[in-house]
């Protein structure tokens, strides 16, 4: 087709030049776009008199952060408020991870039960939870379940645990390291360890939601182990529980751990929805900070950076765990 070939190829058709030409064009467009956006950013920010600076972090925050582990009051600077929010996020994520793993593993194992009803229930739980938005589930737990709990005598009472509208009360080491449970003092529950309903609703929502996804990861991992492994173990006289623990799980973990990593990161990111149930996590503190200072760029940079660090930390931890459980072949 076209003209018969004559003479050397023009340089722009050279296979060694073409890719670089294309990349150069793409890079140029992207750089121009970035320059355009950054130029606007600098112009708009300087027009508003708010060039990039982090000095405002030292100013007093003027708002309170509820239920912090570190002592906090409104007179402390913004950076302390953000740290308090970060600690709250980490607390919810850590408890959520443990709970979701436990629930997910149980449900994942239940889907292999010999009881058809239990299998069906495990399936129904996954299908129910996966098709309803997490935000909807969180507000449901908070407004419909936890805020509807009674207070005082009528509160839900189990040994060592009391669940009331005023919070979740747990037995723990009280004064003088004495183990003590929740007590009712003049109609008000008191305990060495009290969790707010906001925290409880957030963690419950995250655990129930992520648990459904983790159960699928666990189920996939166990299905990936060939059936012959079960049969071989049974023929050696091992019971089903021993087979699961010593034969199947070590092999399934290879498949499970990367899947868990994804779910853990998504749980950490989803914890930012705490703002919907009134738990003051990092995102909620950042939102208040932005509203008060107007420092949009700095606050968003801090926010994105913090979540990136959390994600990377989880990935690093799971990478280490993956190496730990790797099957050492001889």
């Amino acid at each position: 087709m076209g003209e018969p070939f004559s003479g050397p190829l023009p340089w722009w058709r050279d296979r060694r030049v073409l890719p670089w030409l294309m990349q150069g064009a793409v890079a140029l467009v992207v750089l121009l776009l970035i320059a355009f956006l950054l130029g606007n950013l600098v112009r708009n920010l300087s027009a508003a008199g708010m060039l990039l600076s982090f000095r405002w972090l030292q100013q007093p925050a003027g708002f309170d952060v509820s239920e912090t582990l570190l002592p906090f009051d409104a007179g402390l600077p913004y950076w302390r408020a953000l740290v308090a929010g970060l600690v709250n996020t980490l607390r919810a994520v850590l408890v959520g991870l443990v709970g979701a793993t436990a629930l997910g593993t149980l449900v994942g194992l239940a889907s292999f039960s010999s009881n058809a009803l239990l299998r069906g229930l495990a399936r129904a739980y996954v299908e129910l939870i996966r098709n309803i938005p997490l935000l909807l589930q969180l507000v449901f737990w908070y407004f419909v379940v936890f805020l509807a709990l009674p207070n005082g005598e009528a509160a839900l009472q189990l040994p060592g645990v009391v669940l009331a509208k005023s919070g979740l009360f747990l037995a723990w080491f009280g004064e003088g390291l004495r183990w003590s449970g929740p007590t009712l003092v003049e109609g008000v529950w008191q305990a060495p360890l009290r969790l707010t309903v906001e925290f409880s609703a957030l963690v419950t929502g995250l655990v129930v939601y992520t648990g459904a996804f983790i159960s699928e990861v666990v189920r996939g991992g166990i299905t990936a182990v060939p059936k012959g492994q079960w049969e071989a173990a049974a023929s050696l006289g091992l019971g089903p529980l021993v087979t699961l623990r010593r034969i199947v799980l070590p092999q399934a973990l290879r498949v499970i751990v990367p899947g868990l990593n994804t779910q853990y990161i998504s749980l950490a990111k989803n914890s930012a929805l705490a703002v919907a149930v009134g738990y003051t996590d990092l995102y909620s503190v950042a939102e208040t900070t932005l509203n008060q200072t107007g420092r949009a760029v700095e606050v968003i940079l801090i926010l994105l950076g913090a979540y990136l660090v959390i994600d990377l930390a989880i990935s690093a931890l799971m990478g280490w765990f993956n190496r730990l459980v790797r099957i050492r072949e001889r």
Binding site: L41, K269, V275
Partner: peptide
Amino acid sequence: RGAPLITLLFLGQNMIGFLLPG
């Protein structure tokens, strides 16, 4: 993929105004 969607939405609402000409 490293950022929660809600922070990106927050970014969209609060920073697009700065990134584009008035």
